[in-house]
Design a protein around this nucleic acid. Structure first.
Lengths: 217, 217
DNA sequence: TTTAAATTCAAGAATTACCCTATTGTTTGT
DNA sequence: ACAAACAATAGGGTAATTCTTGAATTTAAA
């Protein structure tokens, strides 16, 4: 399995080093770069393409929010997770508006961090317990509803299951037989997947699955 | 564009080093490993997966022919090019029977070598001028005809063109419009591609194209 | 020069993919 | 507790693709 390629961004070198060492022990993760600030990150992105960026908010120069906006508008396939000491609502909301897919407190445990990385990598979103109170949840929903269908559209478990099978060349009928459901159901799931991910056809589903490392090549 | 991953195999270190330095200057090539002999190569292949192996025939221990047989029978998608000082017909014939896709003399120029690498990588075969006389050509054809349809089935230029477009998610109609031909022709080409490569459907074509680096991911 | 291969196109049949709608059960928010 | 949203399941209709067979033209090879 290809590992999740990550770039770390934080203006404190010792924090980066610690996180790097921590994540280096995880077999499904590969740290492919780091940056001490927003400008350095943007420069790095011109020649390195990560799956995920883990970034602080408060940095000298460009803030994490500003950088996130730039990145998500140009290359939305690169997911961004904020790792911040601030869990105030305003920060989180700004981050979400900037298109980040996760917001964790620096107090989070290693397990929480890994879980969040997994979830985000599989197309989901993850906000730390401290920041994901009721108000925030409802706000996120409302904000997204208001600001149109530029939605995250995370796939359900069943959809991911079907995406994986379709992406390795299985036909609807083959998938149906394997999962003991009607080929029409498979068809419907694929249809939903295509819509959620804004794809055109099965061929693009294969490409998507490979790009996002949902299947191995 | 992903570079062609190559492993060099020769029992003379200085030759490997020279070749490595020569190929390192080429941007579409990446030397991902080397071995001094057959056994070492087989061991290397358990954890490194190259696109192409460039190998001498006469080596201590296992000969290049024996190693080629083993590799092509297990992992036929790894292509093998022999780079030998012997251009005698028997050697070449044995090599071809062992499933190699190219046979170059060590006298070949850098340009010939690069050309051969490209051709083989795109699914073709390439034998150096010295060894590719009429006798050999006819022999190769006869041998392949006799030994059934375990053919290389190289794609034509047009087929590769269509494979590329289909693999990035274009429909038959879109491809037809782009190439100014009938969608029925596209259909026919795709049909031939699927048969030649022993695939099942378009999704598998996408996978094939990615695996063989015919398109970028 | 005759043969073979590559590229082009087409008709008809079978299959599959794609799109829309709909039902049922399960969470979730108020 | 009840409405809303979500997840998983399909059916029907249409468009697209695939398979098969056949064939003309051009180009390359024996």
């Amino acid at each position: 399995m290809n590992r999740i390629k990550i770039i770390l961004v934080d203006d404190h070198r010792i924090f980066r080093d610690g996180l790097k060492s921590l994540l280096s022990e995880v077999e499904f993760i590969e740290i492919i770069g780091e940056a001490s600030g927003g400008s350095e990150l943007l420069e790095t992105l011109t020649y390195i393409r990560p799956d995920l960026i883990i970034m602080d908010i408060s940095m000298k120069g460009l803030s994490g929010i500003e950088v996130s906006q730039k990145i998500t508008s140009v290359t939305p396939e690169i997911r961004i997770m904020i790792l911040s000491m601030h869990t105030d609502e305003e920060f989180v909301i700004s981050a979400i508006q900037a298109g980040v897919k996760g917001y964790l407190s620096k107090d989070a445990s290693k397990e929480e961090l890994l879980e969040a990385i997994k979830i985000i990598h599989e197309g989901g979103e993850c906000y730390s317990k401290m920041v994901s109170d009721n108000f925030l949840k409802s706000y996120v929903r409302k904000y997204k509803a208001e600001h149109g269908l530029v939605e995250n559209k995370t796939l359900t478990q069943r959809e991911i299951e079907i995406l994986k099978l379709a992406a390795i060349g299985q036909s609807n009928k083959e998938i149906a037989d394997k999962l003991f459901i009607s080929h029409k159901t498979v068809d419907c799931h694929k249809n939903n997947i295509v819509q959620k991910l804004k794809l055109k056809n099965t061929a693009e589903m294969v490409l998507y699955a490979i790009k996002h490392k949902i299947i191995e090549v």
